[in-house]
C-alpha cells in the first residue's frame, strides 16, 4: 500500500463509485495544463516569431512571411554603423563584467566571513539597483556627473553599468560561498596556508561556477541595457540596444529582425555552454 501513499490512487484501483473524485482530478489536470501551455506559448512566441521573420524575403515587416531567404542576414554585413555599435556594446559589457567580478567577489568574501550588522546593510545596498527603475538611476547619475563636471563618455557609461550589474555577481557568488561553508577555508588555514594561498587554491576553484554565472548575467545585462545607457552615453557613442530600439521604434526595419535572430542564437549558444560548465539552470531555477 505504500505506493498509494506516494502517488494518487491509480484508476485501476478505483471503483465506479468514485466518479466525483475522478472529475476532481481530471478538472484539476485540465485547468493546470491548459494555463501552463498557454503560458509557455506566451513566453516563447515572440522569440520564435522573430526567428521566422528574420528569414523572410519580404521587403517590409509582415507575418507570415511570403517566402524565406537569408537576405536580411546578409544585409547586416553592409551595415558598418551596426558593427561599430555592437563592438562598443561588447567592449562596455566586457569591462563592466571584469570590474563587477573583482569588486563583487572581494565584497562577497568579506560578507561571507563576517557576521556583523553591516553585512545585511551591504547586501541591501548591493542588491537594490535590481528593483529600482533604471530610468531614475540613469537620470540621477547623469545629474551627478553634470554636477561634478564629468562629461559623458564610455567611462560614465561603464560606471553606471557596474552599479546595475554587480547584483548578479554578488547574488550568485554569495549563494555559492554560503553553500560551500567555511570549513574548507578553515581546513586550509589550519594546514598552514596563508589567506591568499587559501583563496587561489581552495576558495576560487570551488566558487568558479557562481563567478561564471554571475559574470554571464552581468555581461548580458550590460549588453542589453537601454534605460541607463540612454542617459549616460555620449551622443557620439552608438550602442547596439539603443540603435535597435530606435530602428524598431521609428521605421520597423526588418534588419532588426536579423540582428534579433543573431542575438537569440548567441544567447542560446552561451546558455548551452554555461550549462555545461556551471549548471546555469540550477542557479536560475534554484533546484
Amino acid at each position: 500500500m505504500s505506493s498509494t501513499l506516494v502517488k494518487p490512487p491509480s484508476p485501476i484501483q478505483q471503483k465506479s463509485g468514485n466518479l466525483p473524485r475522478q472529475l476532481d482530478k481530471i478538472s484539476f489536470q485540465v485547468v493546470m495544463q491548459l494555463i501552463a501551455w498557454l503560458g509557455l506559448l506566451l513566453l516563447t512566441a515572440p522569440s520564435i516569431i522573430i526567428l521566422i521573420t528574420s528569414f523572410s524575403n519580404a521587403p517590409t515587416l509582415e507575418f507570415p512571411p511570403p517566402g524565406f531567404s537569408l537576405q536580411w542576414y546578409s544585409s547586416l554585413f553592409s551595415f558598418p554603423e551596426l558593427r561599430a555599435a555592437a563592438l562598443n556594446s561588447f567592449q562596455v559589457a566586457l569591462i563592466t563584467t571584469l570590474v563587477c567580478v573583482v569588486l563583487g567577489v572581494s565584497a562577497c568574501l568579506a560578507m561571507m566571513n563576517s557576521k556583523g550588522r553591516w553585512v545585511t546593510a551591504m547586501d541591501a545596498l548591493v542588491m537594490s539597483p535590481l528593483a529600482l527603475p533604471g530610468v531614475a538611476l540613469g537620470l540621477g547619475m547623469m545629474s551627478f556627473f553634470a554636477m561634478v563636471g564629468v562629461r559623458l563618455s564610455l567611462f560614465t557609461l561603464i560606471v553606471s553599468h557596474i552599479v546595475i550589474c554587480t547584483p548578479y555577481v554578488v547574488r550568485n557568488v554569495l549563494a555559492n560561498l554560503t553553500q560551500l561553508g567555511s570549513s574548507l577555508q578553515e581546513a586550509s588555514t589550519a594546514l598552514g596556508a596563508s589567506p591568499s594561498y587559501t583563496f587561489f587554491k581552495v576558495t576560487l576553484p570551488l566558487i568558479r561556477p557562481g563567478v561564471l554565472i554571475g559574470a554571464f548575467m552581468a555581461f548580458i545585462t550590460s549588453f542589453d541595457n537601454v534605460a541607463v545607457t540612454l542617459f549616460l552615453s555620449d551622443a557620439r557613442t552608438d550602442m547596439l540596444p539603443i540603435r535597435m530600439w530606435s530602428m524598431i521604434q521609428n521605421d520597423l526595419d526588418v534588419r532588426a529582425a536579423a540582428i534579433s535572430g543573431v542575438l537569440i542564437f548567441v544567447t542560446a549558444l552561451l546558455m548551452i555552454v554555461m550549462e555545461r560548465f556551471s549548471s546555469l539552470s540550477k542557479a536560475l531555477i534554484g533546484n
Partner: peptide
C-alpha cells in the same frame, strides 16, 4: 530562461510582429 536572458528589445520586437 531563454526569454529572461534575451534582450527586452528583441522580445518586444517579437510582439510588434505579432
Amino acid at each position: 530562461t531563454l526569454p529572461l536572458l534575451t534582450s527586452a528589445v528583441v522580445r518586444t520586437f517579437g510582439w510588434v510582429v505579432i
